[in-house]
Design a protein around this nucleic acid. Structure first.
Lengths: 142, 142
DNA sequence: GTTGCTGCAAAGTGTTTGCACCCTG
DNA sequence: CAGGGTGCAAACACTTTGCAGCAAC
């Protein structure tokens, strides 16, 4: 059985004269099964379970590939490491990060988006992307 | 002449049994004269003009001091280095970053803030801080 | 069989830390 | 003159790169 995501990745690979390898499949499948917002290191540990000889460098290289093919998005919550989010079939949203337990709540508020567009226009600015991170304490940690 | 900011820093230093040094004054004054959103390295180059023997480590240590004393805020635009913003007498705002020329426009939209609070409450989340960065192309770069 | 991919180790980046000497209070 | 501060170099954490052998097409 071939997932849609696997198809997306292999299409991207084929179109760019790259190669489908065991390692790339392993990274993709671990990525899809992982909690969202994995770090390279977390993913490395996951993939190592099925692919013990894999190197961290391959994880980074494959994460770049996933990002380029549109399956992942790079995130940076300012904690010194990049995190990667499932992008395919996952619509835009922002993040609320609990500074106690690290939990991440995703949300989207159309009016916030709309007012951003308004502010941008007022400044003659064309938005290509944005990120809104809210830091605080979640209900479990109060 | 002693600026308000210098007073704030020296008060903080005194209250914590630390010491006022030539280097700390130099870093503060370069920080105040710098463009907002300086990186440690940029500040290092600036301070080096008047204090040629200063080390990068002192810049970092002093930037921590400025942050703790409430004169600076740490920022991270996800480009791999921290930036520091003038905080004293500078009210909350968000950033619009031109990905062509690097220009940063600051803005504030009360309704965006208000809707953030609303979303947070709906999720039982208490906000301690937030950051909204909008990336795009500014009017000069179109 | 060509060309891209992998694992490994080394190099890079931005930041932090240990230490002997120096200076402020 | 005690205790914190400094410059320097080494250590750090995360990420990227060079390379020789390997595997996909």
């Amino acid at each position: 059985m071939v997932s849609k995501e696997q198809q997306v990745l292999e299409d991207y690979i084929t179109q760019n004269n790259l190669k489908v390898t065991r390692q790339r499949r392993a990274v993709l499948s671990a990525f899809l099964e992982s909690e969202d917002h994995v770090s390279a290191d977390e993913l490395y540990k996951l993939v190592s379970e099925t692919e013990p000889k894999i190197g961290l460098a391959t994880i980074y290289r494959t994460l770049d590939l996933l990002t380029q093919s549109g399956l992942a998005t790079e995130l940076d919550f300012g904690d010194g490491q990049k995190r990667y989010e499932h992008k395919y079939m996952h619509s835009h949203h922002d993040h609320m990060i609990c500074t106690e337990c690290g939990k991440i709540i995703e949300f989207n508020h159309p009016l916030i988006e709309q007012f951003q567009e308004e502010v941008a226009q007022r400044n003659g600015f064309s938005i290509t992307s944005h990120k809104l991170d809210i830091f605080g304490i979640c209900s479990d940690c109060k």
